[in-house]
């Protein structure tokens, strides 16, 4: 089976508040670029599918040079090829992104399984997998927690309200990956990391479209609350907290 994982490197979503500033439509800060966590989940599924089917997977990213972190990781995990669609860093119209990724995937000869993260943690668009599936006319399995190769197709587990659903789907198809123990990205082997650093990342010129969404403003959102602290030693803290809970939830304690 052939898989393509679409990866995106984003400003560290675990960066402390205030580390990222929002200015003139851009997000800035002395914060490292890391592979987006859900894109990591997608990459893990790609590795698993390629391994189980004795096939191969490729990795594609769209953006500036900052995207190479994720692509290098994909190479270290065994990607047969890594391609960056070269467009300026920063916000990009989601429909245009999907179109250009589709063109890149076609240029790579297509695939049986197209894997996306459910949502990139920078612009939180969460629509690229769907747009891609819609453009390509392929079925989309949203929020996949696990996937295994079953005959010519895949057996997948997807998140639904209050649980999950399992079943089979034929290829080609599009999966949007979610987090869970089955999609936790593995550590690359160091030998492979060293080799990956010597492999090339192919550049594909991005098309200039101009249409679609444009950022007209970007600002930090305000969080409110910041209430009082319960101070004192452990015992005093526990008493205070218990009191607070009793006030908020009538009828607790005493086995009610």
């Amino acid at each position: 089976m052939r898989a393509i994982a679409f990866v995106k490197s984003i400003l560290d979503p675990e960066a402390p508040p205030g580390a990222i500033r929002f200015d003139a439509g851009k997000a800035l800060g002395d914060v490292p670029q890391v592979l987006g966590p859900y894109e990591g989940n997608a990459l893990e599924l790609a590795v698993q599918i390629a391994e189980a089917s004795q096939g191969e997977f490729r990795a594609v990213a769209l953006g500036g040079p900052e995207q190479e972190a994720g692509l290098r990781k994909a190479l270290a995990l065994g990607a047969a090829q890594a391609m960056r669609v070269d467009v300026p860093s920063g916000f990009h119209d989601p429909l245009d992104t999907a179109r250009q990724l589709k063109a890149a995937a076609d240029a790579l000869g297509g695939a049986d399984v197209y894997l996306f993260g459910r949502q990139a943690g920078d612009w939180d668009q969460g629509v690229t997998a769907g747009l891609f599936a819609g453009l390509a006319g392929l079925p989309l399995v949203p929020l996949v927690q696990a996937a295994e190769v079953a005959g010519a197709g895949l057996k997948v587990r997807r998140e639904i309200a209050g649980g999950y659903e399992e079943g089979e789907i034929a290829v080609p198809c599009v999966l949007s990956a979610s987090n869970g123990p089955g999609t936790l990205l593995r550590l690359p082997k160091v030998k492979d990391v060293m080799l990956a650093n010597r492999k090339p990342i192919e550049l594909r010129a991005g098309a200039q479209s101009g249409a679609g969404f444009r950022v007209s403003d970007l600002k930090a959102s305000v969080t409110s609350r910041a209430g009082r602290r319960i101070e004192g030693d452990l015992k005093a803290q526990a008493e205070g907290l218990a009191q607070e809970l009793r006030r908020a939830i009538p009828g607790i304690g005493g086995g009610a």
């Binding site: 593995r186 550590l187 690359p188 082997k189 160091v190 030998k191």
Partner: peptide, 8 residues
């Protein structure tokens, strides 16, 4: 284990 096999 860590470098050749990625097991940590």
């Amino acid at each position: 284990r860590a470098m050749e096999e990625g097991e940590i």
